[in-house]
Design a protein around this nucleic acid. Structure first.
Lengths: 305, 305
DNA sequence: AACAATATGGTTGTTATGGACGTTTTGGTT
DNA sequence: AACCAAAACGTCCATAACAACCATATTGTT
């Protein structure tokens, strides 16, 4: 049974958007007219706003954000307690509760939690805890595997939602985890962050040789490449392959962003890159710098040019 | 673009158009009546809109497009051409066309293609072709990685759909791919088949040690365990670990189904199991034997979803 | 602190939209 | 060929979205 999920009605009216963002209908209409909010028109002239676009605006701007819960399934209150979300997800993942895990991820996103925060403050620590519990054998490997599966499913659901908003003119980013690195969540999260920042993001997944990534670079000519490194088997091999890869990226004019918990200082010092971030928040801000979204609502008199 | 798959049905109904354009059926009817949308009429007066016309208008004008993917591929059970589906998917995967790939998978399922068939006749051969193209270097590894990602996303979308229909009293099945096997699609497909057959199915994913699977067995007490084996590094180690695992499953009264392309005759001869299948159709029929679903009286026109 | 510039939010009359209704067509099954 | 339920039809109408306008709130500059 689907309870009023976004899938049922991707489009909302100006009134709904107004209520969700805590501004008047007139304002919403004006924002649409000056391209702050993208919208389609019906043949009769009614504006149709995409729900996810409104949420995206709310997430990045400092808007009143009156009642985002109206747009989505409310958690409890409109204030999101990151710690509580993490706890809820941890519990759901350990119990293998697919429905709850999905709901936690989806609801916190829809309630306005930025994907970067979701990744850095919720998913990363929770998965670390699950992994740690396995190492200290309080729980078993299969718990961790089940948790990863459930988490992956939840994130792919988000991916679907984010890709629905595809605009026409998006810059391209591609990324992966290098050969020998089998963790799939970090690169998937990076993809989600970039999609949310208005990019077209192609994730090649784990265990991708850097030589292959270079070829993809030549074929697709992206403006940004990300590399999430959670596990390094052969540091020397990686560093040498990376140098070739970075030269290629440089030649193509693509920015390179690297990150991941296996990228310790000793290794990082030997690599050239455009930006490093041990947290996806960095990737998000970097991506938004490179490709700022069109406009943001102003208040009062605009600055002089 | 999915040619040879959508072109057989050039006409759509008002409801389909309404869903695709994100407006109500009443509105579509009115638009046709005032010549905003061109349409033909059946003898009985039903409007038939040409798919391409609606698409063209939606793109050229500013009409909302709720889900153009829906327009891409509505088909009927009777005329699903498995070959055409496979071709469409192959093309979409090679091009990295996320939307089309998703649409092909979702629509063939919705049109009534059994998941087993989708797995055996569409996804397996297509992914084999993509993999083969890589080995013969007509395409590169990154093509194959991108294809796998896109395919995974499409399948997780199906998973969501299947779990939404979950009944309450379902027997439990768990499964995985063994240690060293990093292919994730086969086990995911097996999970989907079991979900479709009315089971609660937990997929532990690739690279799961059999010892861990045994522990999961003891903790969850499923009625069925599946094991998809696409790659075997250490045959001897696997066989010996498997024997322990099978003994445990036997003790718990769980049926064991094994399959996968790495399970060649020489290896299989040394393993005890409840059922073997190199195709997921076998898993499906076996699961339905173990847990027959109440047969629905099929009267009148079936729902088209 | 006063001013200018502009964003906001409420009005107006007008009209597109979408749900409800009972009826008819349709297409698959027996 | 008869049957049947899903789906489309036409009609009606309350709701809500539109454009245009104006008073007020908010903000940067003088």
């Amino acid at each position: 049974m689907s309870r009023g999920f976004a899938e049922d009605r991707p489009y909302i009216s100006t009134l709904e958007a107004a209520k969700a963002l805590g501004v008047s209908v007139s304002t919403i209409k004006r924002w649409v007219d000056v391209d702050i909010l993208p919208a389609h028109r019906t043949a009769g002239g009614h504006r149709k706003l995409m729900r996810s676009e409104v949420l995206a605006l709310a997430r990045q701007g400092d808007l009143p954000r009156e009642d985002l819960a109206r747009l989505a399934v409310p958690i409890r209150k409109s204030d999101i307690d990151v710690k509580a979300v993490a706890d809820a997800l941890h519990r759901a993942l350990l119990e293998g509760d697919v429905a709850s895990s999905r709901a936690v991820v989806r609801c916190s996103y829809e309630a306005g939690l930025p994907i970067e925060t979701l990744a850095d403050e919720v998913i990363a620590p929770v998965m670390a805890k699950v992994g740690h519990g396995w190492e200290t054998s309080q729980i078993d490997v299969w718990h961790e595997h089940r948790g990863t599966q459930v988490c992956t499913a939840a994130l792919f659901e988000l991916q679907t939602e984010l890709e629905r908003r595809a605009e026409s003119e998006r810059p391209l980013a591609i990324g992966a985890a290098p050969a020998g690195d089998l963790y799939i969540l970090p690169s998937l999260l990076a993809q989600l962050v970039l999609l949310d920042a208005g990019w077209e993001a192609i994730n090649l997944g784990g265990n991708t040789p850097l030589e292959s990534l270079s070829k993809a670079l030549r074929a697709l000519r992206p403006r940004l490449v990300w590399l999430t490194i959670s596990h390094l088997e052969d540091v020397e091999g990686f560093v040498s392959a990376y140098r070739d890869f970075h030269r290629e990226a440089d030649r193509q004019g693509a920015a390179v962003v690297v990150g991941g918990r296996a990228l310790i200082e000793a290794v990082r010092a030997r690599l050239p890159y455009s930006s490093f971030g041990d947290r996806l928040t960095h990737l998000g801000t970097f991506a938004r710098t490179l490709h700022p979204r069109p406009k943001r609502p102003n208040r009062g008199r605009p600055r002089k040019v």
